[in-house]
Amino acid sequence: MFKSVGLVSRYDKNQALKLSDTLAEYLAQKGLKVYIDDSLAGKITSKEQFIPLADMNTDFIITIGGDGTILRAAMNAPKPDTPLLTVNMGVRGFLTEIEPQDACAAVDRILNGDYHIEKSAKMAVCAGKEILPDALNDVVISTGEPSKILYADICKDGKPLLKCQADGLIISTQTGSTGYSLSAGGPVLDPTVDAFVLTPICSLTVFHSLVFPADSNLTFNVLKEKMLVLIDGNYRKQITTDELTLNVTKSKNVTSFIRFETSFYDRLRNRLLFKGTQ
């Protein structure tokens, strides 16, 4: 039974802030202990407790925003599998589950046990010996400068695979295959396909997307003086060590989404690929 809830919202949209206040009050009335991301302090009127997202050790978390808000919550919550109820206040909101007007009704359904959990795979990322945050969506590698080409050797399970000469590389999960990778020409993966997608960004050579089994060990050896790693659009790391190596494998962690009736193909049809073609 859920007894505590975290509330995470975008803070640059008045509608999102108003809904945060409304939901905080409604959740407290339902007997839940409510914790609000401290980035909202001073922006909403709620008297509930404000804490850092990294300390939000709650039974579930509600996000109010788009995919960026979801990815921020998934990366920074202290428990990686804390269930997320995702309210759409973004531009596209592919990962979101409900619209703002349905938020209170969704809380009632959750408290009545009328929901299911959808688990999404993540990638474990290491730069040399340094462990970086897990990626729910994607890992992007570049030089960090638009005019500089990324030169890298790509290995699978320790064996050389191919050489890269491109503006960058995107390694995405099934979830991330609908994001930046898709925009760069990559395929959409059905969530039941346990795999990663490797997609080049503006390659100088004939290099199309590759799909790897999720148990693959992918290594990227960058041949120039620096490497920028961007994880889920939230975490940025400039690597300037002598040996520029990035390793990507399947993480033992997952992200859990609270779902009702919607499915992956509902979201794909209504929010992304097939909208208006029914």
Rank of each mutant, 00 (worst) to 15 (best):
P146K: 00
A105R: 01
K156M: 15
I98F: 11
G113K: 01
D134S: 09
P100W: 08
D134T: 08
L136P: 09
G128T: 08
K129M: 10
K159Y: 14
A105G: 00
I98P: 12
E145I: 09
R109L: 02
I149M: 13
P146L: 09
K148C: 06
P146C: 00
G158C: 07
A106N: 06
K156I: 15
L111Y: 02
K122C: 13
I131C: 07
I110Q: 00
V125A: 07
G158K: 03
T96M: 04
E130Y: 11
G158E: 06
D157P: 05
A135E: 14
A152Q: 07
T143N: 12
A124C: 02
E118Y: 03
D157S: 13
A135Y: 14
N137A: 11
A124G: 05
S147A: 15
L111C: 01
Y115A: 04
E145N: 09
D138C: 02
P146V: 11
A103K: 08
P100F: 06
D114E: 15
D153A: 10
N137H: 12
C126I: 07
A127I: 10
P133T: 09
G113H: 01
N137G: 09
G113N: 03
L111S: 01
E145T: 11
G158V: 11
C104L: 12
S120Y: 12
V140H: 10
V139Y: 13
K148V: 13
C104S: 12
C104P: 03
G128S: 08
V107F: 02
D102P: 00
D138I: 04
K119H: 06
L132K: 01
Q101G: 04
A106E: 04
V125P: 08
S142W: 06
T96W: 02
K156V: 15
L150K: 00
E99A: 14
L136C: 08
L111M: 05
T96K: 05
V140R: 07
A152N: 08
T96N: 10
H116E: 01
D138M: 03
K156C: 15
S147R: 10
Y151S: 07
K129E: 15
I154S: 08
L111A: 01
M123L: 15
I141Q: 05
A106Q: 05
P133H: 10
Y151K: 09
A127S: 14
L132Q: 01
E130D: 13
H116T: 06
C155R: 08
I117F: 13
D134Y: 06
I154L: 14
C155I: 02
C155N: 09
D108Q: 06
C155D: 09
E97T: 15
F94A: 04
I131V: 15
D102H: 04
D157T: 09
A135R: 13
T96F: 03
D102E: 14
A124Q: 13
Q101R: 14
P100Q: 09
A106D: 04
H116V: 01
E118R: 04
N112P: 00
D138G: 02
I131D: 10
I141V: 14
V107W: 02
L150C: 03
T96L: 03
N112C: 02
M123S: 05
K148R: 14
Y151D: 08
K129D: 15
D157I: 12
A135N: 13
G113D: 02
A127D: 10
D114V: 06
C104K: 15
P100H: 12
C126Q: 15
A106K: 06
A121Y: 11
E145R: 08
G113L: 00
S142Q: 04
I149W: 00
K156T: 14
D108S: 07
D153F: 03
T96C: 07
C126S: 14
